[in-house]
């Protein structure tokens, strides 16, 4: 039964990823670039969903992890002259440490307290980027275009911001995240995480040390968010404080809930829909946040399971 679900969902996700791969040859430049961006942001949402959707912990400070990866990678390139791969690994290692430290503290709380602790730590991180502006370039952020080396494939040199490089690296990141999420969700560990979401104290009384599993989920979610941030820095060659702001912590909540919390592929749909919705609205008015707010409210009242959550309930029971 489980094996069949695993095969179905891998096929389903594989199909969507294949579609994304083919799309790059068809899409006009503008949408080509949009989809690249969506895939990086969706990876962030997939990482976020790991905590919200599968473990049942809502964080309001995930921008901290995204920005930690982004700044570690960016500053590593700027000051330490790291290679792109080095910067990516440095970003990953840095967020691993940050999320572990954060988890050790924040997981002593739960529910609404956890939410506010994450909000406060996130805000502290944001303010420290502003405060140490001589080192981090504060509000202005900085560009990596002049500091980043070139990617060599088959003796040909490419910029990391080359549209094709960007698109395919984003696709690789997304593929890796979806695959890892799916495999974890079909493993015994995934089963325990879902049990924690459903009923934490009962899970404890089945003999599991719930704290360690929550820490695992948080560190994984945080580190993956960080890697997505580092990737964003590399592919879009810019590092800035907007990615550490509270809005950037709220975005993955919206994407995840809209796409369907607790479904592996949901965040991708949520991110894509919101990205294009905001994009279209921005063409009409600069005030796209009105739409973001309205979608949040309407969704939480009438559509709490999100797109894939509703589909799963109705038809696709095998969906992870």
């Amino acid at each position: 039964m489980r094996k069949k679900s695993l095969i179905y969902s891998l096929l389903f996700q594989g199909g969507i990823l294949l579609l994304l791969f083919i799309l790059q040859f068809i899409l006009p430049t503008y949408h080509h670039s949009s989809v690249s961006k969506i895939m990086v942001l969706a990876s962030y949402a997939v990482a976020y969903n790991f905590l919200l959707g599968y473990t049942g912990l809502m964080s309001l400070g995930h921008a901290m992890f995204f920005a930690a990866g982004m700044y570690a990678a960016g500053l590593g390139i700027y000051y330490l002259e790291l290679s792109a791969l080095g910067a990516l690994l440095f970003g990953a290692a840095f967020t691993l440490v940050i999320s572990l430290l954060f988890g050790l503290f924040a997981l002593r709380t739960s529910g609404v307290s956890f939410l506010i602790v994450t909000l406060m730590f996130g805000q502290t991180f944001y303010l420290s980027i502003l405060y140490f502006n001589e080192f981090t370039f504060g509000q202005d952020g900085f560009s990596l275009a002049k500091h980043l080396g070139k990617l060599v494939i088959f003796n040909k040199e490419y910029l990391y911001s080359n549209p094709d490089v960007r698109y395919n690296f984003a696709l690789i990141l997304l593929t890796a995240y979806l695959l890892i999420s799916t495999l974890i969700m079909f493993s015994p560990v995934g089963r325990i995480l879902i049990a924690i979401r459903e009923n934490e104290s009962r899970t404890q009384l089945l003999g599991y040390n719930v704290y360690y599993y929550k820490l695992f989920a948080l560190v994984l979610s945080g580190t993956f968010s960080g890697i997505a941030g580092a990737m964003h820095a590399l592919l879009f060659t810019y590092v800035g404080t907007t990615f550490a702001e509270i809005h950037h912590s709220i975005s993955p909540i919206l994407w995840t809930l809209l796409g369907g919390a607790g479904t592996v592929i949901g965040p991708l749909f949520g991110t894509g829909i919101m990205y294009y919705l905001v994009d279209i609205i921005s063409g009409i008015t600069s005030n796209y946040q009105l739409v973001v707010g309205a979608v949040l409210i309407l969704m939480i009242i009438w559509f709490p399971m999100g797109i894939m959550g509703t589909l799963r309930q109705k038809w696709m029971k095998w969906l992870p």
């Binding site: 809930l257 949040l296 409210i297």
Partner: peptide, 8 residues
């Protein structure tokens, strides 16, 4: 989530 929406 709803009051975040309200904020926006």
């Amino acid at each position: 989530v709803a009051t975040i929406g309200l904020l926006y």
